[in-house]
Structures are given as structure tokens and as C-alpha cells.
Write a protein that binds this DNA or RNA. Structure first.
Length: 999
RNA sequence: GCGGGGGUGCCCGAGCCAGGUCAAAGGGGGCGGGCUGAGGACCCGCUGGCGUAGGCCUGCGUGGGUUCAAAUCCCACCCCCCGCACCA
């Protein structure tokens, strides 16, 4: 059993043929400059782009999905008479290329092997990957070749990369203007940080691609009695500070005294190291063992209560400050550690002044389904005995935490826990914040209030921590949180901007419509976003050249750049002349071209030409990408257009597609099951790959590429070739008689021409592809069947249109077939076919034949003896009144009544009228509504004629030797010669429902 | 946790927004037949159950509800997938 991944060359003769045909037509398209698009005021324009690739590896099958969909749509629009521009560029901006080239240069065996054996990079090219820019150039050239070989109808004159000098000038303009509008801000932000590299690290920079999750601990400062220092407890649940019975430190850990703001605090040594990345002036001024802290007494800043410091081994010095406040009522760890300590009997030795009653859990939060001390409930439920049972404790903690967070409320009498030594008359003032803002409130609100209150008093601070710790940098160093100061942000949270973006979305067509909601929600929660990095390829921030504009930020309006770059080069305009005023004019029409011309030394008509080309193509009519770009790139793309361009230049449509799986599995580096696009094209031929990716899933679904689907597609393409050969050979055939079959095939074509166009317009490309490849072929087979194998005049008409309609999805074979049909034009540039005349009575007649054949077969199946002969008896022709009655009232309650009425008027007795009417009403209900419409249009069907002319066909299809067609009114003898049972069947004969008597 | 999407026949997957045309498209697999020396190639048929006459029964995550009528609408529950930012 061969899998796709073991293949290298064409799988079959036919695949080889497809490949040869593809190369031939790719050369031809290039020679004739078929897809180079220039402004043409006589035609409506259609500007379409797909997200350009990031060239840190060759394109694989997954990438091809978006581009194939874009290309199909571009080709379809072209055939509909639009002047279509489909350009492509390459995104060099960013750091992954940098780190990857570094890794290759340093001889990373794993990566090198991936390149060679998974991605087909020849060993002799490896040297080219050792330098970032050279790598990007290498892979972008590879990608371009792949795109050409896949048959994408791209105008390559407009190709560029994001490190081209002209592009950098364009981005410079963009960012200057964004800043002027107040959308660029400077601020402070926590990031994952490698202390060794001194660089922010994201998921792709970590071992095992772990995304560092940054969380925020609240530090609460407990003053040590009789000392100036504070113990800095770290907690995720500051609202529980009211229930602290004691503090926990790890006795075996080294703690340090550090200066933090205007206080001296005690934290673990590791915590002090981390805090230096987050706070200014963190300075270690002393060290001590955890055990030295044990037994000291500290004061709870929230309640004034004095509580002892006790030892606990569960305290992890590497998590936050390594100091924990103990809330046994609501924290299972604290509850268990405390119980263990009490049961050990060591308390009196450790803290002689503390007795067990002081350590009783203090209930703070009421939550339905739990007692006053939820921690105890879950500890007992899980049967936890020791603080070493970490898994169980984590489970229990999660349980209490989430129950209390979601359903818990602070107790109303919280204030009674306050023990500040203040005079009674001052007490209300001291208690006010707690009574007003915290007591009785739901936990989330109380948490926020408690934090703010203690912060205001100077007893709380915050510390960021990696929540999924430990996360390691690729260099092996554990990542910490760094608070980056003076980082530049783009303010996607700006509310006016947001509103405009939401307004823009109202007029953007989002395909498929289901994804619109996701866009709106993205706009909803988007806020400031770092806009620049300290390293990587790209454009420096114009006003602070130490920063490089980050890759998702320099790729938001680049579609506009396609409209003019080829002419900037053609006119030989030096990048130094591409100043902001230049772009203001070209992109926005601002400024006086005369003055600009003399200032820049660019001829005025050149400037005007650039401006008018931009103005011709913009706005963008369709933007395509994978669904992963919805919450970032695609949304930013709308934001930036809204910020910089007037509404008539805002994008018109966004099309989003799912991914590609290989043989049912996600393609991934670790599974090494990535199929490089160029290899796939060689194995199956480009048309096969395109069609296989398209037929295997609807737009948003993940497509599953498999050898089986590819082969099935090839089979169908082979049939296309056969039919074209038939059509060509049959030209001048003597059999030119038009039959029912010809009218039927024309009608079917009329349906397909409209239906495929509609499906493509709606980007239901899978449905369109199935109709083109399978259903239309079935129609041709059915046609030949109806004609008993001979080829009539409708055949060629159908095949010609079919080849045209196939051109968007399988352009190469379509070109080849178009040529074989005797045309010298390119089918890619042909017009979408016009639908031929539609004959409702013929469609209905064939439908009627099939209905009858199915009926005969289904009866034959039940009666077990194999029949040889069928006698088919049709209803009298004037009974079609019954059909019309049933059809006109179809769906309504009156249908049956009206039909019975009509039957009575025809002279049927009550019982029979009811029987006949019921049959016809039931049938109409089951029928394809299109057929019902057709039949109503025609009024009636000459059943006698249809059946007798096709009696042989019916017999063949139903596996009978003979079919005799009779009419109710025709032959009285018939009735007499039949057995009783068969005669009873005649009682129920109705239009479209002839009696069938099998013998 | 927040946000988005989804659970359909042996499998994959359409249908659901606009309820009846739905035992439910299409593909795969399986079974039978044809073709053939033979076939994993091609063509035809069948592929929920029952039925000696074109019919009946069950059925679209689970449980309720609305309706003459529900895979489709409403409510609750269970389960699955994806995204959550300085990264392309």
C-alpha cells in the first residue's frame, strides 16, 4: 500500500499527461501575457489578493488551498467579463527566518533533516539557507515556481518583498500617518523574556512550542511585628486576605530582603531575581533561611489581625514570591498543611505562643453546595491526607476556586473580622471600604475591590508570573516575565476606531457568513498591540529606528502597493523620492501633483499615472486567507484601511478557508507528514491537486487530501478527455437527429451553467466542483444511455460549455481540450457560457421515466419472482386536471380536497376519486419542486407518447424483456383479461402514476 | 475562564438560517452483477429494519417543548474542536 508521502514522480500515465499539458499551457499563458492586468476603463475591474507567504520553508499542500480558491475565483470572475488583477508578493518581515537561518548555520541536524527529507531541499542548496535574507530569497523563489506550476493566474510584474526599499518607504508613510492620527502609543507591557538572550519570547521561541502564559499575582505585604520589613505574600485570590490564619514559608529555602519601592520586603531568592525584570530599583540587602522566619508574627494589613509564620513544604520558592498567606477555609493546600502541622504536635515547639484555636479556618465566602469551610469539604471528598498529594490537591483547589469564583459571595458580616486597634468612633470609617465594596459582593467583584483598596493603602503590589511554568527558551534558559517599558503599541482598543471598523464590516461581504461573528468579536476584544520588535527583518519605526515594525503590522495595507509598484520600477523612480507626500498623493489624492512633481523631480504625468492606476484598482474586491488569520491579520487589515483610506476604498469582501489535512491527519513537522506543493504537483498533475483540494471540503471545513481522492479526480478528468474525443470524432456524424435526449441534455446544461456560476459566486467551490466533475459527467452518460449510445447534436454543445466551465478549477486540461475542440483562443480568457434553451416538458418527461423505472424495480424487488414483462397503464389524459389541482394547492390543506373535487368532476365515484386524489397529492408532495413547476408550466405530459417512445429504454433499465404501454381509455379487453388483483390496481391509476402490472 | 464553531447513516461529510421535496446529497468502504486469463482498473445495481406489488416502522448527541408536520424552530443537559496577542 503506497502512501502519498512515498511517491516522487507521476503516479500514472495519465498523471504524466496532465503534467505535460500543464507545462505546455503555463508556457503559453506566459508567452501571451494572459494574466497581466492593466487598467481598462471599458471593463469592470476585480482586484483580488490572497495573504502572501512567509518564506521560511517551501510551500506545502496546506498553503495551496487559499491560493487555489483565490485563483478559481479570479478565473471565474475573468470569464464573467471582469478585468481581474491577481498579484502576489512575499513577506520577509519577522524573526522566525532569523532564528531558522541561525539554526541551520549552527548545524541544527533536526532542522536540516527536515529541510532535506521532508521539504525536498537539495543538499547542495543548504548553504543558501544559512543567511536570513538568502533563505527568504531562496524560499520565495521556490514558492513562486510552485505557484506558477500550480497554474495560478497571477500578474507577476507586481511581485515584491517586504524588505524592498520601495516597500519600506510605503510602510514608513503608513506609520507616520497612523501616529499622526493618534493610533500609535507608547506604554508598558509584560512579556515572556529570556534572561540570556535579553529578548521577548513567544511560542515559536520556546522548547516544545509552549506559549508562555502570563498571569498576575497580587502581592500583599504583611508587616513583621517589631521589624521594619514586610513579608510579601503572593496570591491569585486577594479577596481571601480576610481569612488569613497564618503565613507559610518554606523552611529550607533561601529568602532575601529586598528594597521594593519605599519598603523592605522579604521574598524568595528566585523571586527577587524575577522581580528585577518587572520593577525598578530592586536591590537585595540581606539573606536569611526560611526557617529563620518561622515563628515570627506578622500583621494582616486588611484586618489588623496578628498571625504567625509557619513552615510548609508545599511552598514553592520558584512560584511568585515563595511566600504564601494561609486561608484554610477556602484553600485546600492551606487546610491540609495546617492539619498536618497540628497533628504532628510540633506546633508548640515551632511557635510556642500559638495555640490551635488561633488557626481555626475563618469562613469568608458563601457558596451553594458547600459548607462554611469549602476547603474541608473537598479535602474530605477526595480523601487527601498530606500536602504531598499534589495532584489531588490541585484538583481540589481548582474545584473550590471555580465554584467560589462563579457562584460565591463574600459574607455580609465580613467587617466583624477587622481587628484594628482604633477608637470605636473611628471604626465605621475604617470599616467603610469593606462594608460598602466587598462584603456581600460576588467573588470577582470583591477580588478587584480588595486589590484596589490594599493598593491604595500601599499594602498591595503586583507581580507577573509564567502560569504554565516552567517554560524554557530554545537555549534552555527558563523564561521569566519582563515588563517592557516604552514599547510601541498600535491602539486597536481606541473606541472611535473600533466603531468605524464595525461600521466598515456592515458593508463587507464575509464568506462564509458564519465567520462574520468571529470578526465582530475580535474587534470587540482587541486592544493595544505591540507594533515593533527589537530585531528581525523589516522596516524601522520612522521616529525610533531602534525598533523594527513587526510583521503583522506591516502587512495590513500592502494590497494597495501592488497597484503601483510595477510602474514605480518601470519609471525608474528612486526610493529616496518615495517620501510621505508622494504616497499621500498616490494613495489618497492629496496635494498638488504639479508642486509635488517639481519638488521630487518626478514628471507630473508619471505621478498622475500612478494615482490613476491606484484609483482604478482600489478598493480591494476580495481578500482571501486561512481562518487562522481571522483574529489578527484580517481584522488588522480592515482596521488599517479604515484608519488610512476613505470609505470608498475600504475592502469589499473577505473570504476565509479552512486547512488541509493529509490522509485524515493534520500535517505537521513532528509527524513529518508534510506534502510539499511542488512534489504533489509532480505526482498527480496540477489540475488533479487543485480539484482534489477543492472537492474534499466546503470552504471553512478542513480539506482532506488523499491519494484516493486524487485518483478519483483523475478518473473524472480522464472522462472529460474521452468525452472531448467523442465530441471531436462525432463531428460530421450521420446521426444528427434531435431526440428527447438532446432536448434533455440542453436543458440540463442550462441548469448547470446557472447553478455552477451561482455556486462559484458564493464560493461554494466544493459543490461547484462536484457538479462539474461528477454530476455533469453523469448527465452525459445518461444522455448516451437515453440515445442508446449514439451521439446527437446536443453532445458537442454540452462538451464545449463544460470545458469552459471547468477552466477555473482545472485550467490546464481545459485549455488542452479547448484546443482539441478546434479553438485557437485561450479558454481562460473565454466568456462563461450562455445557458441554452430550457425545455421543461423534456426535463419532466425524463424525470417521469426514471420515476417509473424506480417503481418497477422496487416492485420487482418485493415480489421475489423475476418478472419478464411489465404492462404499464396510464391514466386518461384529461385526468391531468388532477395533477394541476394537486400542484397548485401543493403544501396547503386544500390540496386533497381540491383534487378530489376535480376527480369527482371527471365522473369518478366518491371512493375512487379519493384513492386517485390521495395518490397524486402524495406524489406531488414528494416530487422535486422544480419539476412540479416545470410540469405546471407545461400543463400536462403526454404519458402515452413518452412511454411508448422509450419502452425499450425502460425495459433495459428495469431489467425486463418487454414493456407494454396501454391507456385506461384505450382497450376494454385489457380490463377483462386481467386477474382481479391487477384490475384493482387500475382503480388507483393517476397522472404520473401509471399502474404497473408485472408478469 | 472568555470568545467562535460543531455533534447527521459503517466512515468522511452536505442539509439546518427561510419546518413538509429527508431514509436524508456527494465521496469512501462493503456486498452483488457485468467486463476480463485475472484484477486493487472500468461499468451497473444494492448498502437502517420489515414487507409476495410501488408500502410501513425506526431514525439525524441526550431529554423536554412548539407545530397538522422538526435533522431543521425553542429550552435544558452532555460531549468535541479552534482562537485568546506581541507570533507568523
Amino acid at each position: 500500500m503506497s502512501t502519498v508521502l512515498s511517491l516522487r514522480g507521476p503516479v500514472s500515465e495519465f498523471a504524466k499527461f496532465l503534467l505535460d499539458v500543464a507545462e505546455k499551457w503555463q508556457r503559453e499563458w506566459q508567452r501571451r501575457r494572459a494574466f497581466e492586468a492593466d487598467p481598462d476603463p471599458s471593463k469592470p475591474k476585480f482586484f483580488i489578493t490572497a495573504a502572501f507567504p512567509y518564506p521560511n520553508s517551501p510551500l506545502h499542500l496546506g498553503h495551496s488551498r487559499t491560493y487555489t480558491i483565490t485563483d478559481v475565483y479570479a478565473r471565474f470572475k475573468r470569464m464573467q467579463g471582469y478585468n481581474v488583477l491577481f498579484p502576489m508578493g512575499f513577506h520577509f518581515t519577522g524573526t522566525p527566518i532569523l532564528t531558522m537561518a541561525e539554526a541551520i548555520a549552527s548545524g541544527d541536524r533536526e532542522l536540516i533533516d527536515l529541510m532535506v527529507s521532508v521539504y525536498d531541499v537539495p543538499e547542495h542548496d543548504l548553504d543558501k539557507l544559512k543567511d536570513p535574507l538568502s533563505m527568504a530569497r531562496y524560499f520565495s523563489e521556490e514558492a513562486k515556481k510552485a505557484m506558477i506550476e500550480a497554474g495560478y493566474s497571477i500578474d507577476w510584474r507586481r511581485e515584491f518583498t517586504t524588505v524592498d526599499e520601495e516597500f519600506k518607504r510605503f510602510i514608513t508613510w503608513q506609520f507616520l500617518r497612523l501616529r499622526e492620527k493618534g493610533y500609535i502609543k507608547q506604554g508598558t507591557h509584560p512579556v515572556g523574556w529570556c534572561p540570556v538572550h535579553s529578548m521577548p519570547v513567544g511560542m515559536h521561541d520556546t522548547k516544545g512550542d509552549a506559549e508562555p502564559e502570563i498571569g498576575e499575582y497580587t502581592l500583599i505585604l504583611f508587616r513583621i511585628e517589631d521589624e521594619g520589613a514586610y513579608l510579601a505574600a503572593a496570591t491569585l485570590r486577594p479577596e481571601t486576605v480576610f481569612g488569613v490564619t497564618n503565613m507559610w514559608v518554606n523552611p529550607d529555602t533561601l529568602y532575601v530582603k529586598v528594597r521594593l519601592g519605599n519598603k523592605v520586603v522579604i521574598v524568595s531568592e528566585r523571586a527577587a531575581f524575577k522581580l528585577r525584570f518587572q520593577k525598578d530599583g530592586v536591590e537585595v540587602i540581606g539573606k536569611l533561611k526560611g526557617s529563620e522566619l518561622v515563628g515570627k508574627v506578622v500583621v494582616n494589613p486588611a484586618t489588623g489581625r496578628r498571625v504567625p509564620v509557619l513552615p510548609a513544604e508545599f511552598v514553592d520558592p520558584d512560584t511568585a514570591t515563595g511566600v504564601v498567606m494561609s486561608v484554610p477555609a477556602h484553600a485546600p493546600y492551606d487546610y491540609v498543611a495546617l492539619r498536618e502541622l497540628l497533628e504532628s504536635g510540633k506546633l508548640s515547639r515551632i511557635a510556642p505562643n500559638v495555640d490551635a484555636s488561633m488557626l481555626e479556618p475563618i469562613p469568608l465566602i458563601e457558596v451553594e453546595g458547600y459548607s462554611e469551610v469549602p476547603a474541608r469539604d473537598v479535602v474530605e471528598k477526595h480523601g487527601i491526607r498530606s500536602q504531598r498529594e499534589r495532584n489531588k490537591l490541585d484538583e481540589a483547589t481548582k474545584e473550590v476556586y471555580s465554584a467560589e469564583f462563579r457562584r460565591g459571595r463574600m459574607r455580609r458580616d465580613l467587617a466583624k473580622l477587622l481587628e484594628f486597634g482604633v477608637p470605636a468612633e473611628l471604626k465605621p470609617y475604617v470599616e467603610a471600604p469593606v462594608v460598602m465594596d466587598i462584603a456581600g459582593k460576588p467573588v470577582p467583584e470583591a477580588r478587584e475591590r480588595t486589590k484596589l483598596w490594599l493598593e491604595a493603602l500601599g499594602y498591595a503590589d503586583k507581580m507577573y508570573e509564567i502560569m504554565n511554568r516552567p517554560v524554557y527558551c530554545r537555549c534552555g534558559t527558563e523564561i521569566v516575565v519582563k515588563v517592557l517599558k516604552d514599547q510601541w503599541f498600535i491602539d486597536y482598543g481606541n473606541s472611535e476606531w473600533k466603531e468605524s471598523v464595525l461600521k466598515a464590516f456592515e458593508s463587507i461581504r464575509v464568506v462564509p457568513p458564519e465567520i462574520r461573528q468571529e470578526f465582530l468579536k475580535t474587534v470587540d476584544w482587541l486592544h493595544e498591540r505591540a507594533v515593533a520588535r527589537t530585531r528581525g527583518l523589516g522596516t524601522p519605526l520612522p521616529w525610533d529606528k531602534s525598533w523594527i515594525i513587526e510583521s503583522l503590522s506591516d502587512s495590513t495595507i500592502y494590497m494597495a502597493f501592488y497597484t503601483v509598484i510595477h510602474k514605480i520600477r518601470k519609471y525608474g523612480i528612486h526610493p529616496s523620492k518615495l517620501v510621505p507626500e508622494f504616497w499621500d498623493y498616490v494613495m489618497l489624492g492629496k496635494g498638488d501633483p504639479e508642486k509635488l512633481a517639481s519638488k521630487l523631480g518626478i514628471p507630473r504625468d508619471v505621478l498622475e499615472d500612478l494615482r490613476s492606476e491606484f484609483d482604478y484598482w482600489y478598493p480591494l474586491d476580495s481578500r482571501h486567507s486561512g481562518r487562522d488569520l481571522v483574529p489578527n491579520h484580517l481584522t488588522f487589515f480592515v482596521y488599517n484601511h479604515v484608519a488610512l483610506f476613505p470609505p470608498d476604498k475600504w475592502p469589499k469582501q473577505i473570504v476565509v478557508n479552512g486547512f488541509v489535512m493529509l490522509e485524515g491527519k493534520k500535517m505537521s513537522k513532528s509527524l513529518r507528514n508534510i506534502l510539499p506543493l511542488r512534489r504533489a504537483l509532480r505526482i498527480y498533475g496540477p489540475d488533479t491537486v487543485r480539484a482534489a483540494v477543492l472537492v474534499s471540503a466546503e470552504l471553512l471545513q478542513d480539506a482532506d487530501f488523499s491519494d484516493a481522492v486524487a485518483r478519483s479526480v483523475m478518473t473524472q478528468l480522464n472522462k472529460v478527455v474521452k468525452h472531448v474525443e467523442n465530441a471531436v470524432e462525432s463531428t460530421g456524424d450521420t446521426e444528427r437527429r434531435e431526440t428527447l435526449a438532446d432536448r434533455w441534455l440542453d436543458s440540463r446544461l442550462a441548469i448547470h451553467v446557472k447553478s455552477v456560476a451561482q455556486k462559484l459566486e458564493e464560493l461554494r467551490i466544493r459543490a461547484a466542483s462536484i457538479e462539474l466533475l461528477y454530476e455533469m459527467e453523469h448527465d452525459l452518460e445518461a444522455y448516451l444511455d437515453l440515445r442508446g449510445g449514439s451521439i446527437g447534436p446536443a453532445y458537442r454543445r454540452f462538451v464545449e460549455s463544460w470545458v469552459k466551465m471547468l477552466a477555473p478549477i482545472t485550467p490546464h486540461i481545459a485549455e488542452e481540450m479547448w484546443q482539441r475542440l478546434g479553438h485557437e483562443t485561450l479558454v481562460s480568457l473565454e466568456k462563461w457560457p450562455e445557458p441554452p434553451a430550457y425545455h421543461p416538458e423534456t426535463i419532466a418527461a425524463v424525470y417521469y421515466l426514471r420515476l417509473l423505472i424506480d417503481d418497477i424495480k422496487s416492485i420487482a424487488k418485493v415480489i421475489k419472482t423475476k418478472p419478464k414483462k411489465a404492462i404499464v397503464v396510464t391514466a386518461p389524459r384529461n385526468w391531468w386536471r388532477l395533477f394541476r389541482a394537486a400542484a397548485e394547492f401543493a403544501g396547503s390543506r386544500e390540496a386533497l380536497r381540491e383534487t378530489i373535487k376535480a376527480a369527482r368532476e371527471l365522473g369518478l365515484d366518491a371512493k375512487r376519486a379519493q384513492r386517485v386524489a390521495r395518490r397524486i397529492v402524495e406524489l406531488v408532495q414528494r416530487l422535486d419542486p422544480e419539476i412540479v413547476k416545470d410540469l405546471l408550466k407545461v400543463g400536462e405530459l403526454d404519458e402515452q407518447r413518452v412511454l411508448s417512445q422509450n419502452a425499450d429504454y425502460i425495459a433495459a433499465k428495469a431489467g425486463l424483456e418487454e414493456v407494454v404501454v396501454l391507456s385506461m381509455e384505450e382497450d376494454a379487453r385489457l380490463h377483462e383479461n386481467l386477474p382481479d388483483e391487477a384490475r384493482r390496481k387500475l382503480e388507483a391509476v393517476a397522472p404520473l402514476r401509471p399502474a404497473v402490472i408485472l408478469q
